[in-house]
Design a protein around this nucleic acid. Structure first.
Lengths: 341, 341
DNA sequence: CTGTTAGCGCTTTCAG
DNA sequence: CTGAAAGCGCTAACAG
């Protein structure tokens, strides 16, 4: 049942050939659309293939071709919300063509990662995409690998590798500029875990934008965790010391959700009294907030697609430009910064 | 750079053999730990392999072995929160061994799915796990496939296939029984989209448990969407018509979050006045709620692991038992049903 | 146009 | 113990 073993061995090209009464070579040409095959012959071969339910053995094909049409997607943390959209983007870009993706989750363990790389190379993948869970640089796989490697989200710590990561700095700047455009000037920043490069980079963008606008930040950037709980606590601290605040930039949508809760508890209207902007544009959180949450979107799916395309290019022989590319993020405006008409 | 093409073609077993001054056959045996190889010879071969950075070509190995040590993971919707833990579980169970996973996302499109199956079979995967995004039955892949298939989360609509899905009925029952154990008796049910089998099954479990306890449900089960917004609206309707309620079973954690918000707005204490229980145990939502949310956990990762093990067994030749297996869910207790001491 | 002949890289009898 | 030889399934020159 359920295909367990089953009856007859799966048909080979040889079977097709003899059933069609031609040679192996001719059968191959006929099926692969090579010219130099008489139309009638080709038809006969194709018919035979259908009848036998012939499935070309990609292993054998790859063996001669030298390429397998497979790539490895090496992630350190499947759980992470960030890996998934990237993975989708990549799967998407590849899936359109003839490429299949080996998914490997190293669980953040270097040994396991090494093991997976080994396996991928044994299987002769044509290339590898390494997807990290933070934007902090990660150790390079080195340049000894026989296939091209692209780093996504976490850049490689080796500047000669090719890495793609979101532009968190400009995200921080964008958040501030949007609040200013909304007429705010007394702006604070509540961020997440300060050990994350993302937290620091966004803050740098925040600072730069404030400076450029000639504004002074209300209080200091508050760092702690990426959670709602922290968002609630931080907002309550902040409002106690700076009740006149009119805009809050948050390091994540979770933090923003917490901030919104506290503002509501304190009777401040959003965006009337205070405008709030989140980060990540995590749909399910953003669209269910009261009011719905304006947020900065990292465009991760696009990042994944681009990583895939870059890898393609490299596989095709083009040389990967060394360095880390910072991809543009985008603003998604909802009710927490601009009131519904 | 970055491994693009690079210098010397990757070493073959032949290269190793001649460098070690032995025949191909001997080299093979030495490397694969076959006995009947002189210890010194083996050492020499292994050294040669190291020096050349030899990587056995899994394609060639598979070609003779008849098995590839790969499986396909066919999902209809990577985006979905439910697919990921299952995928992790499977990757986990496989990853421990020598198996690699091809990830294919059909985007809910039957054509694309067909296309992916084709590709997987061409690559001679040893088996396939089909992961759906709802617990509603999905079309079977049929029994014509030359490899075993296991269905996870979405069961197959063909009862002779082997499917694993969470036991939503007992989840619904468990939620009620927990509220009763917490001393509640005026219990309502706010659920999600009624077109989902999950919504119906959980409700059946709910009804049965109420009946068994001799309790009458407060109002009727309210169906609409799996969102926070709906949870807020539903709770507000419910409390207007039934202010004396003391327990609410929710169809999802998102709904429960909405319910909690409304209760807070209305000044009802949780769990003092009303106990609330969610479903899915979505950590990031549950642990950031006020109070933290008790929830039913579908154990998806375990489901994924089990699916992988089942597939293993089938690949090894054991016959898959026909039918849909309903896997146990578990209760995760937090502050929304039992007050902190 | 079609068929014969080498391989791709590796494993596995089966003789030495 | 070691090696020669025959494939695994397919493709790519070459000749016919």
């Amino acid at each position: 049942m359920a295909g367990a073993a089953g009856g007859s061995r799966t048909a080979t090209l040889g079977d097709v050939a003899s059933r069609a009464g031609v040679s192996l070579a001719t059968a191959s040409k006929a099926i692969n659309g090579r010219d130099q095959v008489a139309p009638r012959t080709r038809a006969r071969v194709i018919a035979a293939a259908e009848e036998l339910g012939f499935t070309p053995n990609a292993l054998a094909q790859s063996l001669t071709a030298g390429r397998t049409g497979t790539v490895g997607l090496l992630t350190s943390d499947l759980e992470g919300r960030f890996v998934i959209p990237i993975l989708m983007g990549a799967e998407d870009a590849f899936g359109a063509g003839q490429v299949n993706v080996f998914l490997c989750d190293a669980r953040g363990d270097a040994i396991r990662e090494q093991h997976h790389i080994r396996a991928l190379l044994n299987r002769r993948v044509d290339g590898i995409i390494v997807v990290g869970r933070q934007t902090d640089p990660r150790p390079s796989l080195g340049h000894e690998l026989p296939v091209p490697v692209v780093y996504a989200y976490s850049p490689s710590d080796d500047p000669t590798d090719h890495s793609l990561t979101p532009d968190n700095r400009s995200g921080g700047r964008m958040a501030v500029e949007h609040l200013i455009a909304c007429g705010r000037s007394r702006i604070a920043h509540i961020s997440g875990d300060p050990s994350y490069a993302a937290a620091q980079d966004r803050d740098h963008g925040f600072q730069a934008a404030m400076r450029d606008a000639g504004l002074e930040q209300v209080g200091h950037t508050m760092f702690s965790a990426w959670s709602e709980v922290w968002g609630r606590d931080a907002a309550s601290l902040l409002l106690r010391s700076h009740p006149d605040i009119d805009g809050i930039v948050c390091g994540s949508d979770q933090i923003a959700r917490g901030v919104l809760d506290t503002l509501r508890d304190l009777g401040r209207s959003v965006p009337g009294d205070v405008a709030v902007i989140g980060y990540d544009n995590w749909e399910v959180l953003a669209t269910n907030a009261r009011p719905e949450l304006t947020s900065i979107d990292n465009n991760l799916e696009e990042l994944g697609r681009l990583a895939a395309r870059r890898l393609f290019d490299a596989i095709a022989g083009r040389t990967l430009a060394p360095g880390t590319e910072h991809l543009p993020v985008k603003l998604t405006i909802r009710g927490s910064t601009i009131p519904h008409q």
